[in-house]
Amino acid sequence: MTPLPKSQIEPEIVPFKAPNPSVPGASCPLEIHDLTVAYHQKPVLWGIDLQVPPGRLVGIIGPNGAGKSTLIKAVMGLLPLSSGWVKIFGQPYQKQLRRVGYVPQRESVDWDFPVNVMDVVLMGRFGHLGLFRRPSKADREIARECLEKVRMLPYANRQIANLSGGQQQRVFLARALAQESDLYLMDEPFAGVDAATEAAIVEIMHELKERGKTLLVVHHDLPTARNYFDMLLLLNMRLVAFGPTEEVFEYELLQKTYGGRLTILSEVADAVRQKTS
């Protein structure tokens, strides 16, 4: 593999520093070191280094194909890593399953599947139940509370195909709430939802943050990103910047995220693939 010009690989600005370096890794909800992920030998994420402080609401933004969803999936071990490691509260993901809640993209499932709203939300409890055990009354109660939070309780017995896009997204959110986790990973929760749902989701995200949870949210709308999140992670195949929104949300960094550099990186990525396959 041809060595890349150094300036292409390393993020030029990483303003964020861990607030208190003496705290052991266990207090850091998510730490990523030198993460590289490739699809069919074609790298989509290069050398990501990241330390997310607890209790923050982090927006992941970047253009299409920047690897936003890939980053989330890689964190949860859904994709093989080409290099690097990920730690959740100081330990590998497999040991912290119950501390991570996940909201996948709405289009990733078949909404004609024969389940109702309650069935889907209860799935959030399965990770806590382990094999063989069925959801108990207490689990159902938790599921009902989570449905109430997203204002979907009246729809508990609805078949999921009979919901609007926004309602479907709220069901997914309720399922993640039912996971009762400390770190939430959300993949485009605002995609294709109505204004009321968007407001409800923002409200719930803030409430989770107030309770000390950490949230990483893939987001594609720049104007709202500025208002919704305390920290932004600008991503375009590599980490362009990560820091408090007011510091990172500035023209030059955004230009770098969405601008012309993309072409060089993706061309090199293509070259790498052709060389190795």
Partner: peptide, 10 residues
């Protein structure tokens, strides 16, 4: 229903 979620939940 949702293999991605199932894997993420371990």
């Amino acid at each position: 229903f949702d293999p991605g979620f199932a894997r993420a939940a371990g």
